[in-house]
Amino acid sequence: GGTTSGLGELPSGWEQRFTPEGRAYFVDHNTRTTTWVDPRRQQ
C-alpha cells in the first residue's frame, strides 16, 4: 500500500489491477466491465 495518492478506497465491487506493462486499470465486478478511468475521479 501507500500509493493511494489520497483518493481513498475504491467503490464497493471495484478492483485495481495492472497490465503486464504496469499500467493501472479498474475492474467493476458489479457490471463485469473494465475501465482506464479511476472511478474515484468520477464522483
Rank of each mutant, 00 (worst) to 15 (best):
G1L: 05
G1Q: 14
G1P: 08
G1S: 14
G1F: 04
G2H: 11
G2I: 12
G2T: 14
G2A: 10
T3I: 06
T3R: 10
T4R: 10
T4W: 08
S5K: 14
S5G: 09
S5Q: 15
S5V: 10
S5N: 14
S5W: 07
S5L: 12
S5A: 08
G6T: 14
G6S: 14
L7T: 11
L7R: 09
L7A: 12
L7P: 10
L7Q: 11
L7D: 13
L7E: 12
G8M: 11
G8V: 10
G8C: 09
G8F: 09
G8I: 10
E9C: 09
E9T: 08
E9I: 07
E9F: 08
L10I: 07
L10F: 11
L10C: 04
L10D: 04
L10R: 02
L10A: 02
L10W: 05
P11K: 00
P11L: 01
S12N: 12
S12Q: 09
S12L: 07
S12T: 06
S12W: 06
G13T: 04
G13N: 03
G13A: 04
G13F: 03
G13W: 03
W14A: 02
W14E: 03
W14D: 03
W14S: 02
E15W: 00
E15I: 03
E15D: 11
Q16Y: 08
Q16F: 06
Q16G: 06
Q16S: 08
R17V: 13
F18S: 10
F18I: 11
F18R: 10
F18P: 02
F18K: 11
F18T: 12
T19M: 05
T19A: 08
T19Q: 07
T19L: 10
T19S: 13
T19V: 05
P20K: 14
P20S: 14
P20A: 12
P20T: 12
E21L: 05
E21A: 08
E21S: 08
E21Q: 10
E21P: 04
G22C: 05
G22M: 08
G22D: 06
G22A: 05
G22W: 04
G22T: 02
G22L: 06
G22V: 00
G22S: 06
R23G: 12
R23Q: 15
R23Y: 14
R23T: 14
R23H: 15
R23L: 14
A24Q: 10
A24F: 10
A24W: 05
A24T: 12
A24D: 11
A24R: 11
Y25N: 03
Y25K: 02
Y25R: 00
Y25D: 00
F26E: 02
F26S: 01
F26V: 01
F26K: 01
V27G: 00
V27Y: 08
V27E: 05
V27Q: 06
D28E: 03
D28M: 01
D28R: 00
D28K: 01
D28T: 00
H29L: 07
H29K: 08
H29E: 06
H29T: 07
N30H: 03
N30Q: 07
N30G: 09
N30V: 07
N30M: 09
T31S: 10
T31M: 07
T31I: 04
T31A: 08
T31G: 07
R32V: 04
R32Y: 06
R32C: 08
R32M: 10
R32K: 13
R32L: 07
R32N: 12
T33A: 07
T33K: 07
T33N: 06
T33W: 03
T34W: 02
T34Q: 04
T34E: 04
T34V: 06
T35G: 03
T35R: 01
T35Q: 05
T35A: 02
T35H: 04
W36H: 10
W36K: 04
W36G: 04
W36Q: 06
V37R: 07
V37N: 12
V37L: 11
V37T: 09
V37C: 12
V37Y: 15
D38V: 02
D38M: 05
D38N: 06
D38S: 04
D38R: 06
P39H: 00
P39D: 01
R40Y: 02
R40C: 07
R40S: 06
R40L: 05
R40V: 04
R41H: 15
R41K: 14
R41P: 14
Q42N: 13
Q42P: 14
Q42W: 13
Q42K: 13
Q43V: 13
Q43R: 15
